[in-house]
Design a protein around this nucleic acid. Structure first.
Length: 428
RNA sequence: GGGGAGGUGCCGGAGUGGUUGAACGGGGCCGCCUGCUAAGCGGUUGUGGGGGCAGAAACCUCCACCGUGGGUUCGAAUCCCACCCUCCCCGCCA
């Protein structure tokens, strides 16, 4: 959420941001109009309330019943005027707030302007995509062949866009999770969190998933509980409605959770394989920092995520998202994309974003810079560290051998009981 | 799921319709005292919004906030309703 004062004082900045994101700018005009009305009403309401408070105090001191009753009668009239205005003020504030929740964050100046992902900018590339002297298979062929991914039985149980990991496949994912968490907690200074995977709607409002993107989320039928699309939601909301004491920042958290996404918007896209599924696991990195530290913290967040891909020795590239592809809450985002030689495409395994105070304002997360100082909104950042299925795709497709087996990256072997290679039954 | 208790400031804990933004205690902070420390004494201690000021700090003033949202009343932390949360007992259960 943007600061209403900022919107009022710099409407042209907000209008420009909406334009760059290809959003309807009329929402801004409605906000400005409601804000004007709100301020008028506040002035009137407060004037009446001040009078009411003053006279009520007088009444309490009056002994003479005649005089007292006269005053009370006069106040009755004031009261009804006040109630009418208060009702209108409430309505205006409700409308205003609903609109404010639908205005996206302002992109940073260094974000390239663009229409969609085609306008994203590739900043750099790491590693050389492997060359094969045989035709590399996509993971949706490799997985079943090795008997480590089972799509058919998953569909039987849960329908399309679900998958089952089996044997070494399940173990490989578990190894990745443990290893990633170890790297982030031991080497990068993150504290591990195990959060709820079901959250109240206000938590999703805090991160910016609601109210605009309700159709991408799974929701409980009877209660106000939603399945998280990412650990970002519960972890960012950890400190909601809090004022963190001086010296608290920065706070780094990492969390491993399942993630649930309806993928209704992408119907028909990426139907094969485990690239785009309704349920997947992810290790997430979340930071709470002082506003001034934002740029540096974004860079180090990106480095922390990159460390994982580098140690797996998977070639990747860093992409700076354009305004057309930038997420609703983000001010700037870098994607890490790994090369999947079998599928023949770059896969987004991490999205590292700086949200400035956008989420902090929505979730009311503040900190006190020093004793006695006024509270300020923190800045939040997050990025995947990494998403499991896509990392698995890159590993399987990159390290496949001509005989169909897959070499396990060295860093994971200690987490796999020393296993060096996944071999299919057919290959034996 | 059934029954009961309760949600007040940084913490503990009063307060059941009228100078209560909130007694009292603890903690914190600032002074005083003291060779130093402890004890003791005095003072102070919230958040958000509006105005005084074009702007920043300080200060003054008004409004709101005693779980959340409505309601009753001239006036509500105090009364009523709904919801959320915590604790205890019973039942059920991984």
């Amino acid at each position: 959420m943007l600061d209403l004062n900022f919107i009022r004082e710099h409407p042209e900045v907000v209008r420009e941001a909406l334009r760059k994101r290809h959003e309807d700018t009329s929402i801004l005009d409605r906000v400005l109009e409601l804000d004007r009305r709100r301020r008028e009403l506040i002035a009137q309401v407060e004037r009446l309330r001040a009078e009411r408070n003053r006279v009520s105090k007088e009444i309490s001191r009056l002994k003479d019943p005649e005089e007292r009753n006269a005053r009370i009668a006069a106040m009755r009239e004031l009261k009804s005027r006040l109630e009418t205005l208060e009702k209108e003020l409430r309505d205006v504030e409700t409308q205003l707030n609903e609109l404010l929740l639908r205005i996206p964050n302002i992109p940073r100046p260094e974000v390239p302007e663009g229409v969609d992902e085609r306008d994203n900018v590739i900043l750099r590339t790491w590693g050389e995509p492997r060359t094969f002297d045989f035709e590399p298979l996509p993971h949706w062929d490799l997985g079943p062949m090795l008997d480590i991914i089972d799509f058919e039985r998953a569909a039987k149980i849960s329908g399309s866009r679900f998958y089952i990991l089996k044997g070494a496949g399940a173990r490989l994912q578990r190894a990745l999770i443990s290893w990633m968490l170890d790297v982030h907690t031991r080497e990068h200074g993150y504290t591990e969190i195990y959060p709820p995977a079901l959250v109240r709607s206000h938590a999703l409002i805090g991160t910016g998933n609601l109210p605009k993107f309700a159709d991408t989320l799974y929701k409980d039928r009877e209660e106000d509980l939603w399945l998280i699309p990412t650990a970002e939601v519960p972890v960012t909301n950890l400190y909601r409605e809090e004022i963190l004491p001086p010296g608290s920042l920065p706070i780094y958290h990492t969390a491993y959770t399942p993630c649930f996404r309806r993928e209704k918007v992408a119907a028909g896209r990426d139907v094969r394989g485990i690239k785009r599924v309704h349920q997947f696991d992810k290790v997430e990195l979340v930071k709470f920092v002082e506003p001034e530290q934002g740029p540096e913290e974004l860079e180090s967040l990106l480095r922390h995520a990159e460390t994982i891909v580098q140690r797996l020795e998977l070639p990747y590239r860093i992409v700076l998202l354009s305004t057309g592809d930038l997420g609703f809450s983000s001010a700037i985002t870098y994607d890490i994309e790994v090369w999947a030689p079998g599928s023949g495409e770059w896969l987004e395994v991490s999205s590292c974003s700086w949200f400035t105070d956008f989420q902090a304002r929505r979730a009311n997360i503040r900190y006190r810079p020093e004793r006695g100082a006024k509270p300020r909104f923190v800045h939040t950042l997050n990025g995947s560290g990494l998403a499991l299925p896509r990392t698995m795709i890159a590993i399987l497709e990159t390290y496949q051998q001509e005989d169909g087996s897959v070499i396990i990256p060295e860093v994971l072997r200690p987490y796999m009981g020393g296993m060096e290679r996944i071999e299919g039954k057919k290959a034996e």
